[in-house]
Design a protein around this nucleic acid. Structure first.
Lengths: 219, 219
DNA sequence: TAATGTGAACTTCTTCACAGCC
DNA sequence: GGCTGTGAAGAAGTTCACATTA
């Protein structure tokens, strides 16, 4: 197959496949079928095969997929077969927690610097990441160049997010993960991904209301 | 229109419309067109109108939508025209940050209790939320009943997440927001929403790779 | 003129179903 | 028998375009 246009939902699932493959590997398995991989994630076997087929032929008929082999391929596809230097803007509660999050480095993302606009924080170490000192926003451009940073995390209040995004884009950052609860306007060549935690809860709230109205769809 | 089945993507956007309406309201506006609302979020005007039409007729031809009126309707649709009591399991770095997050209460979600399995944390206040004392997991069921809790946040390590989910479901929780980087298996009547921050970065990494291969699609 | 609501057309995504291989 | 890869069919979601209302 090897399509040139790939559905965005398929790329999202690719990350989930990788995560699940790592779990399976920890459990001692060496191969996995599309059926088993799909079951673990609530997807059909056909969906799994189709998604992978967008990128090449990685399976072995009668056998399934070799876990190590497929993990390597997915990392290559996602571009995480190397380490990315990232930076974080906003050393509040959430930013501090994100800075300490081990899951990023496990997946090949290395935090090199943290920024904040609060003069009382500047010059101090990030709580729980002693090795990183909080810097003023004015230092962003320099850091981007120095460490070839292409990805940044925004964890500032909504009111400040657009300004920070502008700074990051100007400094040469190519992708932004936005935790501020507001939409960002950026040039089309800049990738943006957003996480709004209140929005997630609202989705759950809606689903609960739905279930109450039309309950128990079995199948 | 008032369809009985509503596309999941439409529901997701509904939350974003509400967020944007609140921003507009703060800016002093009283009405907004589908065009303007769409532009702010990177959507077409038709998309906005179609999404809203799934739920009823809220607009005024020639005028647009009344911001207060539409906000109220969306809150009613999402079920956030009331306060939800929520609880949080996992008082690590991320859990602590989430507990302190003001965005939840702003949107009608009230945190009533925090749980952790670490005996050294139990009995202590949540850092930066002095009013809440960390409780052992065994207290979950009691709290769910006492406060009529229907939604819970999981922010424990991946290895513990499934066990915690089982506990929550058994206690009567109806929806779970999962921050652990693993898929959860729950009964079909339980709603699950997941946030995996490393997955978000991987999506950005992929997009950057894509852009390098086939750059500058203008249009 | 400005803007909504919506059927119809279109595009995108998912599932089916089966040839082919181990 | 078990399992992949994929064209074809089907389902879902988005955009168009226009009648309609203020």
């Amino acid at each position: 197959m090897k399509a040139d246009h790939i559905p965005a939902p398929a790329v999202k699932r690719l990350s989930l496949y990788l995560r699940e493959l790592e779990n399976l590997q920890r459990g001692g398995r060496t191969t996995v079928s599309s059926r088993r991989l799909g079951d673990a994630l609530g997807l059909t076997d056909a969906q799994v095969r189709k998604d992978l087929a967008y990128f090449g032929q990685f399976g072995h008929p009668g056998i399934g997929y070799d876990i190590t082999e497929l993990s390597t391929e997915i990392r290559r596809i996602l571009g995480t077969d190397r380490t990315w230097n990232i930076l974080l803007v906003g050393a509040g509660n959430l930013g501090t927690a994100l800075a300490a999050y081990r899951g990023f480095s496990k997946r090949g993302f290395h935090l090199v610097a943290v920024f904040d606009s609060d003069p009382r924080k500047i010059g101090r170490p990030v709580p729980s990441v002693e090795s990183i000192t909080i810097q003023p926003l004015g230092e962003i451009a320099k850091t981007v160049k120095q460490y070839d940073v292409r990805l940044a995390i925004i964890s500032v209040p909504a009111e400040a997010a657009q300004q920070v995004a502008d700074l990051l884009v100007e400094a040469g950052v190519r992708g932004v993960l936005n935790f501020a609860p507001t939409a960002l306007t950026v040039p089309s060549e800049i990738a943006v991904s957003a996480v709004d935690m209140a929005v997630q809860l609202e989705q759950l709230s809606f689903q609960l209301g739905m279930m109450q109205r039309l309950p128990a769809r079995s199948g």
